[in-house]
């Protein structure tokens, strides 16, 4: 159906998309996970309340989350050039992807950790657990199934953001869909890239669900 050149282009697109998504997800979690923990721990009902700090971090997270990703992408270009040396290609897109999704991940993590029954935290406190012991031995392990499910949601969100990078020449499936399908009216190429994106989303969601069920000892 497609020529060898097109097939190679699509396969490169898949690789670039997966690369951007996986790398950005990892880096975004490195930022977002501690941020989410911070939001829970410093909450006024948290294990180490710091109301002012909690407010400030909360507001920064909300501001970053309210900026549309396309705007963030363009706004961050000077910063991206500073860090990566270019604003083109998958590596360049990783920068706005990480900055745009880390606050979202922080909120996902926050909501997962808040699901942990307060009684369990109280039990740990009654045994003399320090706040850091409570975070790493109680909150995170107890919330693991929910964190995994949140992880799948985050990866899918990053994947869909990465497709927007097509507008700024970031590479990946989004670029193919926009360059061929949108600018040149080649519907078949757009469809195939969209179909591949659908499959990736299905796969990630399915994998997330399986990992969650396997990790959850409450079932």
């Amino acid at each position: 159906m497609f020529s060898q050149v097109v097939l190679e282009m699509i396969s490169k697109g898949i690789r670039e998309t997966l690369y951007m998504t996986i790398l950005s997800s990892l880096l975004a979690y490195i930022l977002g996970l501690p941020l989410g923990i911070l939001l829970v721990v410093t909450d006024k009902d948290g294990i180490a309340p710091r109301v002012l700090l909690n407010r400030i971090v909360g507001i920064i997270v909300n501001i970053l989350r309210s900026i549309p990703f396309v705007i963030l992408l363009v706004t961050l270009m000077p910063f991206t050039r500073l860090v990566i040396g270019t604003t083109l290609g998958p590596n360049a897109l990783v920068v706005p992807l990480v900055i745009g999704s880390a606050p979202y991940i922080a909120r996902l993590v926050e909501s997962s950790l808040k699901e942990v029954d307060h009684g369990i935290i109280e039990a740990a406190q009654s045994m003399g657990a320090s706040p850091s012991q409570i975070v790493f031995k109680v909150l995170v392990p107890e919330a693991m199934p929910s964190l995994i499910m949140g992880g799948a949601i985050a990866v899918i969100t990053i994947l869909s953001y990465s497709a927007m990078g097509g507008f700024v020449g970031a590479g990946g499936l989004g670029t193919i869909a926009i360059n061929y399908g949108y600018y040149r009216y080649q519907g078949d190429k757009m469809l195939i890239t969209v179909a591949i994106l659908v499959l990736i989303v299905q796969g990630v969601q399915e994998l997330g669900g399986r990992l969650m069920r396997r990790s959850d000892k409450r079932l």
């Binding site: 029954d117 009684g119 369990i120 109280e122 039990a123 406190q125 009654s126 045994m127 003399g128 657990a129 320090s130 109680v138 392990p141 107890e142 693991m144 199934p145 990790s215 959850d216 000892k217 409450r218």
Partner: peptide, 20 residues
Amino acid sequence: LKIRQSMGMIFQQFNLLMQR
């Protein structure tokens, strides 16, 4: 924290770690 280690506590809802 150290002193609490010499005071055990049990609860109405048991409060066990569900993932352990």
